[in-house]
Amino acid sequence: MHKLILILFVGALLHAEDADNGKKLYTTVGCYECHGRVGQGGSAGPRLAPRPVPLQALVAYVRHPSGAMPPYTSKLVTDAQLVDIHAFLASIPPPAKDIPLLNQ
């Protein structure tokens, strides 16, 4: 079992990441619904971006969530697709600092 997961990970890591494809997938498979369209988070799910958790942690959580998040098996989203989703999340720039409207 562990070996299999390892092989999957290696396979996933070999896949060249594609953030644009990740952005599309992030919408089509529904991550945006709970995490927001740019991973900002909200009442239905925590913030994922910028600086997402490491790829391995993301894959592990998506496959076996423990809280309110529904599970995604590899039949629904492949490891290679999660690499792209991770790349999309990593590509999101950090927010501006000192937004005056947030100091009122």
Partner: peptide, 20 residues
């Protein structure tokens, strides 16, 4: 306040921005 800054410039508009 820090959390509200994420997706500040996003379109569709973030609910945090709307409320701020």
């Amino acid at each position: 306040r820090a959390d509200a800054a994420y997706a500040w410039d996003a379109s569709p508009i973030s609910t945090a921005r709307l409320c701020a």
